[in-house]
């Protein structure tokens, strides 16, 4: 029964990994940008929520109303004033610039908030649970987390597949120059894509912040989880990313069941196995790549 529980917990956690991963793969899909600061920006979102909660006494979930738009603005500006200038010159500049951003964000957080672990308190919500059988009960909060993650993914899926913005994102991903020919301001679109990316990151950051404690140096680990979900699920497919996130979540939960020290390791091993045996991911689309 513990194992079944572990799998259920992992699945519920996987939704958040999928959200994290979606932001990473959106930026990669649209502008071939691998954002090494992704995890640190995720942690930044959690700290922003902490500030909002401390200042207003609001529930962190309500704080999302403030944190998500702020992170979107940060994403937009980051792309506009910095990252756009790192694109187009090969693989090195974006990697180095986002690495620099990661270092800056990490150490600013360390400076402002100290190295102490923090947590977000969502109140009684966190302890409520739904009993399935007498041995298996599912926490209400993890369930909500998965639902929100799937909801955000559905929303994104709708935007990408049904709206003019989504078409523009896909077109730019296909062929930036052809996109400019139809009148798309690709730089502005990149900024919008980064705004969306950090919006999803913000949601994931707040939920993860409620679930576990976080500190200024936790960013790289978040980046790695996002990245592993992307690769496990298969590059560039939104639902593949969900599968990847859930697979990673389950692997970690199972690893944790074996030995708590091996939670992350189990995820890494799954990632390496996928890389070795199915490098296109578990759920890769054969044709029509999506952002």
């Amino acid at each position: 029964m513990e194992w079944v529980n572990a799998v259920i917990q992992g699945t519920l956690l996987g939704g958040l990994y999928a959200l994290l991963a979606t932001g990473l793969s959106l930026a990669f899909g649209v502008m071939r940008l691998v954002n090494l600061a992704h995890g640190d920006l995720n942690i930044l979102a959690a700290y922003l929520a902490l500030v909002v909660v401390t200042a207003t006494g609001a529930n962190p979930l309500v704080g999302l109303v403030a944190v998500v738009p702020v992170m979107m603005v940060i994403g937009f500006l980051l792309q506009r004033v910095l990252l756009n200038f790192a694109l187009g010159g090969g693989v090195l500049p974006p990697v180095l610039v986002t690495f620099g951003i990661a270092v800056v964000v990490q150490n600013v957080l360390l400076d402002v908030f100290s190295a102490d672990s923090q947590g977000l308190d969502a109140g009684p919500l966190e302890n409520a649970s739904v009993t399935l059988t007498d041995q298996i009960s599912v926490g209400f909060f993890p369930l909500l987390t998965l639902l929100v993650a799937v909801g955000v993914l559905l929303g994104l899926q709708f935007v990408v597949s049904r709206t003019q913005l989504g078409r523009a994102l896909r077109a730019t991903s296909d062929d930036t120059e052809a996109a400019r020919i139809v009148g798309i301001d690709h730089r502005r679109l990149y900024s919008i894509a980064m705004a969306i990316s950090l919006g999803t990151v913000a949601v994931a950051g707040v939920f993860l912040g409620i679930r576990t404690t976080f500190g200024p140096s936790d960013g790289p680990q978040r980046l790695i989880f996002a990245f592993e979900s992307v690769i496990i699920g298969g590059l560039g497919s939104l639902w593949g990313t969900l599968v990847g996130g859930v697979a990673l979540g389950v692997a970690q939960a199972v690893g944790n069941q074996v030995n708590p020290a091996y939670q992350a390791l189990a995820g890494h091993l799954l990632f390496l196995a996928v890389l070795a045996f199915r490098p296109s991911g578990l759920f890769a689309r054969r044709t029509a790549r999506q952002v």
Binding site: F28, R32, L33, V34, N35, L36, V91, P94, V95, T98, P220, L223, I224, F227, E228, I231, A261, Y262, A264, L265, H268, L269, F271, L272, L275, A276, P279
Partner: peptide, 23 residues
């Protein structure tokens, strides 16, 4: 493992490998 990845993803992939050794 690492050479299955390219560019920025190679960067994170090598990082994961280092993490595996650390753990």
């Amino acid at each position: 493992f690492a050479f299955r990845l390219h560019g920025g993803y190679f960067a994170i992939g090598t990082w994961v490998i280092a993490e595996v050794f650390r753990i």
